[in-house]
Amino acid sequence: MNKRGEEKILAIYWFVILTLVAGGIFTMTILFYNHPYDVREVESQILINNIADCLSRGGELNPELFEGEEFSEEFKTNFLQTCNLYFEAEGGEAEEYYSEITIYNASRLDLPVYEINAGNKNLVASCNIQEEKKYKREARCMEENLFSVKGGKLYLIKIMSAIGKAKENVK
C-alpha cells in the first residue's frame, strides 16, 4: 500500500473513532440528565412541616382545632382549606398526596383523641414496601412526631405523609 492510501484509511479510522467517542459522551450525558431527581422524601418532609405549622404554633395547638373543650369536627372537614393545602391532581387523575394526623393525649399514648386524614388513601399501601428497591415507583412515606400543649394538657401529634408522583420522580 502506498503512503497516501495508508494516510487516507487512517484518517477515516480516526474519524470513526472520534464519532464513537463523541456518541459515547453524548449517550452518557443523555443518560445522566434524562434521569429525574427523586425529591419525594423532601416533598413529604415539607408537607409534614406545613401541616405541623398549621396544627401547632409556638408550642401550642392551633385554637381552630377546638370547639370549646372538644376537638372540632369542622376543622377536620375543612382541614385542607384551613391549612392551605391543595391535594388535587391535574386532569382528573388520582390524587398523589395523602396525609394522616393522629393526636394523642400525652398521658395516654395508646388511644388517639383526634384523627384527620386527607388525600388518596391508596398510597398508604406502599408505605411498608418502600424500602425495597424494586418498588421504587411506589409512594414515599414519612412519619414525624411533635409535642404541643393546650389548656395545660400535653398532646403528641403524629403526622404521616405519602407522596405518589412516580411519573415525575422515577424513570
Binding site: 429525574p36 422524601e41 423532601v42 401547632s56 408550642g59 401550642e60 411533635l146 409535642f147 400535653l154
Partner: peptide, 30 residues
C-alpha cells in the same frame, strides 16, 4: 439523583436541628 432529607438538615455535633424538634422544644418550655 435521590435527594434525601438527611442532606437538608442542619446538624450540630451531638444534636440535630429541624423544624419539628423546634416546635417540640417550644412545647417543652410551656
Amino acid at each position: 439523583k435521590i435527594i434525601k432529607i438527611k442532606e437538608m438538615k442542619l446538624e450540630i455535633p451531638g444534636e440535630e436541628i429541624n423544624w419539628l424538634n423546634s416546635k417540640t422544644s417550644f412545647a417543652y418550655l410551656r
